[in-house]
Design a protein around this nucleic acid. Sequence first.
RNA 1: GGCCUGUUGGAGAAGAGGCUUAACUCAUAUCCCUUUCAAGGAUACAUUCAUGGGUUCGAAUCCCGUACAGGUCACCA
Length: 549
Amino acid sequence: MPSLLDIAELVLPGVDPSLEHLEAIYPKRTLEAGAEVTRFAPSPTGFLHTGSLFTALIGYVLAKQSKGVFIFRVEDTDTKRTIKGSDVELLEQLIKFGIVPDEGWFPEGDKGNYGPYRQSLRADIYKRAVKHLLIEGKAYVDFATPEDLLKIKEAQEASKVLPGYYGVYARDRNLPLDEVERRVKNGESYVIRYKSMGDHNLKTSFDDLIRGHIELQDNDMDIVILKRDGLPTYHFAHVVDDHLMGTTIVNRGEEWIPSTPVHLQLFRDMGWEAPRYAHLPVIMKLDHGNKRKLSKRKDPEASVGYFQEMGYPPEAVKVYLMSVANSNFEEWSIENQSLDLSKFTFSFGKMSLDGALFDIDKLNYFSREVLSQMKGLPLVEEIKDWAKTYSPSLLEKIERDPAYFSKAIDIEKERSNPRKDYAKFSDIEASVAFFYDDEFAKMKAKGLPFDGKYDRAFIKDFLLDLSKNMDYGPDEGAWWNSVKEVAGKHGFCLVNKEYKADPAAYKGNAADAAGILRVALTGSKNSPNLHEVIGILGHDRVVARLTLD
RNA sequence: GGCCUGUUGGAGAAGAGGCUUAACUCAUAUCCCUUUCAAGGAUACAUUCAUGGGUUCGAAUCCCGUACAGGUCACCA
């Protein structure tokens, strides 16, 4: 009769099962007291999901504020679902949001001493741990095929017992070792399952950093730890990796709560200390009156790419997510007049337990705040970066004259209440269009929206006079006085009280006069401050626009 | 279906047995400011904390039941 060791050697020949040897390669980290090691570990199966960004942000902030380490690990054990290039994409997007991993997988090579940081490259490491479990009798060889499993499940459902591969239903759990040896040698394919000693009539519990004490059924499922393809399942990879990499806090979505007992069991049976867990609420969306998880397929805002496409500054998205993560962030930001995340201390205690609805209005609000605080060359550069991929026409306008563009977007920002009229870069082109003569010509061709109560000749005459006698200096008061003077000559009433007393006696009030000027200059009844607009357009362009044909 | 988690206004939420006439922020509405718009300022917006019961002098806060919502039960993560 072969021994457990013989079987282990047969299944994983030449693999060193010594945990001590394994751990010697990944020594305990020497970090300051209180420093947290966190990680973001996505599967490279597509683009960055908003929820993943949320998770990554929290891990990042946790590591940064505790002077710890933030790791980027690629969980590519599902070879069928892995999408080529997705890993790079994920990392790049993370970095665009300023979430730069201290350690982890990078296209140019691993950074850090706890790699490889790509699970498909760690197969040997998992095998060592599996072999250890095999020898200890805490794992076993299972020959059940998917069809066998289905049959077992059907039988269980028929007799109304809990479905799954566990206890007496775990067919190959206690297979005689000589039979195992014979079948393996015979070339039968198999997986390695964990031999759970749990009892689902019993409870286990753990303390979640966000939710506190959670009590749930103990696990008794003999979960697969090594798949037929020789790669581990998530559960096993999580345990091995997070132990070896020295992760102190595992923050992940709340969908992992039910499998935490498995992980805890695995840690215990490996003789390792489990990390602390923080199960994050999922970001939801209201759909026909029902809350549901943001769906990549149905909701554009579920993909981080959407925010990039719309031109939300990364900072704004981060600030918004932080306000969702910590309810006191908003108050803090108002009190401290700062949206600088690195100055804010994140805490799990201030995290809400149920999934927040994604609120685009609030994102827009934060984004306006963020954008109103950005100006000058840095802003132009950021917009340019965005326009390069998303708006060739805007890019062309910027490149025509960056300084002019800069003045146009920074209009009314040098005041205590800076102008906040765009929330995202995609709003900008429309709001600055009138500064550009070619765009203005298009507006003019469609007809300028002058107030219908004035006839063309009157408007033309008034504007021409204005263009000649307006004060073009930097003093707004002087300019306005000059405008009023011309307006008075043309029959506008300059004192509103008098106008209101007898409107019929005048052409209109000062506001009407300014309205005509505004339309002539900006092509719209609404615009930023006219004096500043004139300053940016410059004398010649203003004269040209005030000269109607 | 079993198990887990959650439920305070349109949205994010504060709240830990009396200091809550339920804070704060976004949204919305009205008004003010103003040469328009944006911004800014002011005001309004939950007789009540999913619901039924209980404990208590006193409950959004503690306990039990119910409803609803989300998650999970893969050789996917």
